[in-house]
Design a protein around this nucleic acid. Structure first.
Lengths: 132, 132
DNA sequence: ACGAATGTACGACGAATATCGTAATTGCAA
DNA sequence: TTGCAATTACGATATTCGTCGTACATTCGT
């Protein structure tokens, strides 16, 4: 059911995964052009990177015309979970709450976002009284 | 006012910083012994690492007897902020809230923790109505 | 005062990563 | 069908990171 236990990706690889997660399946050219907007690297660099990621089972690919269409294999949600956990373990001494506070503090949440959390909290509380 | 704009530390370095943050100034031996509890590496490895970190201005040091006492230069809080921001940018598409939700979802907060957040939220709301 | 123990300094090495040049391949348009 | 432009394949190189061996320095107990 799980083709992959843990995701091991470098920062550069994360960037590419993020593009794929956001834009759906892409060719190397598309990914590269997006990357090039805020980063400076040659086309073959991106190509090589994606080839390696394909070997590492981070990307699947399918021929399409003369090029390849690449797709992210790990889900964004799964990767997020793992990375968040790693951050918590490494510098938040294992406390997820501290991370939450940090993120909230940094961010100056908008009213709408505060409402979102509140709603979430209320729902959690309901869960607690209803069951368990 | 700020001796350091951005903190660039590898995972291994983060581990060491975390020890220093938690235990306060330490000698190489102390850090190494703590690391050795859940990791396997030689003493000189830790030493070298901390020397490099000293060059990189991640650690300051002070002679103490025959050894050196090392201290983390960046504050834990600052490092947390930067890392959280980087995570948000790289895989949460810039949305701090998504990270918060992910962390909350992962973690199954306790009642006490929920109260903490709620209190925090109320305070935020007060801020919003009082000032600004 | 001297030798063992404990530290530090320094350089080297392997693996992984990032980057790119160049060659081979492929699809398509004329 | 043939040539060109785009794409892929395949190393080669540079850099960084983690690791450690070994040499040098210092302290302390006796």
């Amino acid at each position: 059911m799980k083709q992959q236990e843990t995701i091991k990706a470098t920062d550069a690889e994360l960037e590419i995964l993020n593009i794929l997660w956001t834009h759906g399946p892409c060719t190397v050219r598309q990914v590269h052009d997006l990357l090039a907007q805020h980063k400076d690297a040659g086309y073959t660099t991106t190509l090589k990177q994606m080839q390696v990621m394909h070997e590492k089972q981070l990307l699947s690919r399918e021929a399409q015309g003369k090029s390849h269409l690449y797709t992210a294999i790990p889900s964004r949600h799964m990767a997020q979970g793992q990375i968040v956990q790693r951050v918590i373990d490494s510098i938040f001494n294992g406390s997820a709450m501290q991370l939450v506070m940090q993120a909230l503090g940094n961010h100056k949440p908008s009213q709408k976002e505060l409402d979102m959390i509140e709603e979430y909290l209320n729902q959690k509380k309901d869960d607690m009284t209803t069951s368990k």
